[in-house]
Design a protein around this nucleic acid. Structure first.
Lengths: 237, 237
DNA sequence: GATACTTCGTGTGCTAAATACACTTTCAAA
DNA sequence: TTTGAAAGTGTATTTAGCACACGAAGTATC
């Protein structure tokens, strides 16, 4: 926000579109997953389908956080989802790949227009997740975060950076339970940490640490229907 | 980046301007400072001057990092300045304050247009800093980060968040020396840490920690011209 | 050249946290 | 009752954090 030179020659640029892209993480007790959308193409054209992270243009009177929340709620009816802005991606040519352009032409007024995107990641409880019917044109599905296919735009980079940020925040703020059901065992939590951080942890030390941070509390309840000693259930806070 | 519904009705928004704002930190051996610009107003109008962090609109073919670099180089001729993107500020009304609008009208084609800004912070060696003459309309000056006046737009919030992010990164990555001259003593470095983190540190433990991280190396040289035992000089890496 | 002044530079003991490591317990199923 | 499978727990060792005080190396002054 600076004024160049003394003269009052107004200064401007063409501006750009701004979007929000959400890297939605989920955990199924075995793998850390990311939610992708595969867009159906109008069937007259036989383009290869494009896979992408859910996102949308920011509306004219909407803050970034509001836009991210809206995008998530178009996918799921969950409220109170954990959401965090993590980076702005501003390469001037990030939507100018050939396939990206062909795709954008099918639904944007100005497909060649520059788009800045703000990356958010969110943590959802996979157990409670139900994709809203027909909310998006394409269907949604989960893929292993360590085995992401080739995505539209710079979305591979966005997912990769989201994972790095998630790791940092997991260590700093112990937000892991956001990915688990309301009630969970410490073993589930440990496995989640191990998969996100991509390394094995010692069971006893892990429990000591988690209990010391006091981000979870023990319930009176135990796991049921398992064919081994049932674990105590915990819940957040 | 999502297509709503099956139909091919193109979707769009009015777009917005995108700017980059740089919170430039400097250290003068006593206080942590932030660089501000005070804009001269056309003298026909007697508005109060506006103080702000340096920033500018992102040009049409410029990445965010490039824009930040350009803004910094309009202020100083230093190369290789430490620069880090830390947050996007997207409140739809963040430039719509009364005084902000009066000011913007003096140099923007569309002063009421929404502006998204990407916050960067940068670390400069105050000793080597020479503001470029007449580079900006207003004059630049340094203020104590703990005593920032009222700024234009949401720049107070931007500075505040930049400081928080700087603290985190200082602890994690030990980038403190970026604010010091090429050659510095460990006492200088410690004082810098104390001021950024806003707490006292123990001398012996601080030294142990810094030397263990191996982010600095000792020179053969000693401080000169001090009226006490001269300290050993260090340099980065 | 002795003295005063100021910051530099260092070592140790104590406490707290991080790590490594293995066996018994509890339940369901066969 | 035996088997299987994960749960749950304690201790010893190592490493990091922290509090603490004094001699050393220069400059300035008299």
């Amino acid at each position: 926000m600076s004024k160049k030179n003394g003269e009052s020659t107004p200064k401007n640029t063409l501006g750009m579109d701004v979007s929000v892209d959400c890297v939605v993480f989920g955990f199924d007790n075995d793998t850390l997953k990311v939610l992708l959308i595969e867009q159906k193409q109008p069937d007259t054209i036989h383009l290869k389908t494009q896979k992408a992270v859910p996102g949308d243009l920011v509306l004219d009177n909407e803050s970034l956080d509001e836009a991210a929340k809206r995008i998530l709620q178009e996918l799921t009816s969950l409220k109170g989802i954990y959401l965090k802005q993590f980076h702005a991606f501003g390469d001037p040519n990030r939507v100018r790949g050939l396939k990206d352009q062909q795709w954008l032409r099918t639904f944007r007024v100005n497909p060649e227009r520059r788009v800045l995107t703000i990356g958010y990641y969110s943590l959802v409880k996979l157990s409670e997740f139900k994709p809203k019917a027909a909310s998006f044109a394409g269907h949604t599905y989960w893929v292993d975060v360590y085995n992401i296919p080739s995505l539209a735009f710079d979305h591979n980079e966005i997912v990769h950076k989201a994972l790095l940020m998630l790791r940092h925040e997991l260590m700093a703020d112990h937000i892991g339970f956001e990915l688990l059901p309301e009630k969970f065992t410490l073993s589930q939590l440990q496995k989640l940490y191990e998969i996100i951080l991509d390394k094995k942890l010692d069971k006893r030390n892990f429990r000591k640490n988690i209990l010391r941070t006091e981000t979870v509390t023990a319930l009176e309840e135990k796991q049921q229907g398992v064919l081994h000693k049932p674990a105590q259930l915990f819940t957040k806070k």
